[in-house]
């Protein structure tokens, strides 16, 4: 298995305002490897270090020590992101642009030739069912439509690795189904998908392997079958691993 996403002893510390500028450890030596063609679920409770890991991989925050690479290139190099697509949890796009203009902008960023960009934009607008609204400003879109634009932009460069941050958060059942379909399709095409989610049922359905982080440390990694061995389902295994034995609710 060729690792296309790798972190070694990844440590991230930052000064917390809440803690009167004391150092807070967000990640404490995370070792992670994701192989080509895998659908990899990245799980953990809130504050576990999932978003920090993604932020490191995407070059948003600096790492304190250790290393992180994509396709063997240090994540601090912008070129490491040439073959990835990223879908944030919420829609953060230029809302004065139309969907077509936004996709064209990102196509230019990736250096796609005009005819190639035209073809790719048409394909993606069809895929996310936004052809009818392609020339309308994004600010006039519903939340679901904006999420679909997000999905389209994450695929503009036909990425080999797709990083999804809570991809189905806030989506209606149809939207969730669409995202699952797309993940499935990418998997069939041999693409790698790395995603964080709190929807454990969904993770169980689509993932080849999962990792569970808690308090900045990797607690478990393996196939879904390996993680759930001896447990009723992934949710029970997850709760056991992060140290919650019983539900506080009756």
């Amino acid at each position: 298995m060729t690792a296309i996403l790798r972190t070694e002893k990844l440590r991230v510390e930052y000064r917390s305002r809440e803690m009167r500028q004391q150092t807070k450890v967000a990640l404490a030596g995370l070792d992670l490897e994701v192989g080509a063609g895998e659908v990899f679920g990245f799980l953990g409770p809130n504050g576990a270090g999932k978003t920090t890991t993604m932020n490191i991989l995407l070059g948003f925050v600096p790492l304190t020590s250790g290393s992180a690479s994509l396709f063997g290139i240090d994540v601090r190099q912008p070129i490491a992101r040439q073959r990835i697509g990223y879908l944030p949890e919420l829609t953060y796009y230029y809302k004065f642009l139309t969907a077509e203009e936004l996709l064209r902008f990102y196509a230019k960023i990736f250096g796609l030739a005009r005819h190639e960009a035209d073809q790719r934009i048409a394909e993606l607008l069809k895929l996310v069912e936004l052809e009818h609204a392609a020339k309308r400003p994004i600010k006039s879109y519903s939340k679901g439509m904006q999420q679909r634009v997000g999905l389209a932009q994450s695929l503009i460069n036909n990425p080999d690795l797709l990083i999804l941050d809570e991809p189905t958060s806030g989506l209606d059942p149809l939207g969730r189904m669409k995202v699952r379909e797309i993940i499935q399709r990418l998997k069939e095409q041999g693409k790698t998908v790395f995603f964080s989610s709190h929807e454990l049922g969904e993770v169980e359905t689509v993932c080849d392997r999962v990792a569970i982080v808690h308090q900045g440390e990797l607690k478990a990694v393996g196939t879904v079958a390996e993680i759930t061995a001896g447990h009723e389902n992934l949710e029970k295994a997850f709760l056991k691993i992060v140290g919650v034995q019983n539900s506080p609710l009756p």
């Binding site: 995407l58 070059g59 948003f60 912008p78 070129i79 490491a80 992101r81 040439q82 990835i84 990223y86 944030p88 919420l90 953060y92 796009y93 230029y94 809302k95 990102y106 960023i109 990736f110 997000g150 932009q153 990083i163």
Partner: peptide
């Protein structure tokens, strides 16, 4: 503020760009 910087820097774009 609009957090549009995140999807932008997730592309092969540096802060210098």
């Amino acid at each position: 503020e609009a957090r549009t910087i995140f999807p932008l820097l997730a592309k092969p774009v540096s802060r210098w760009h």
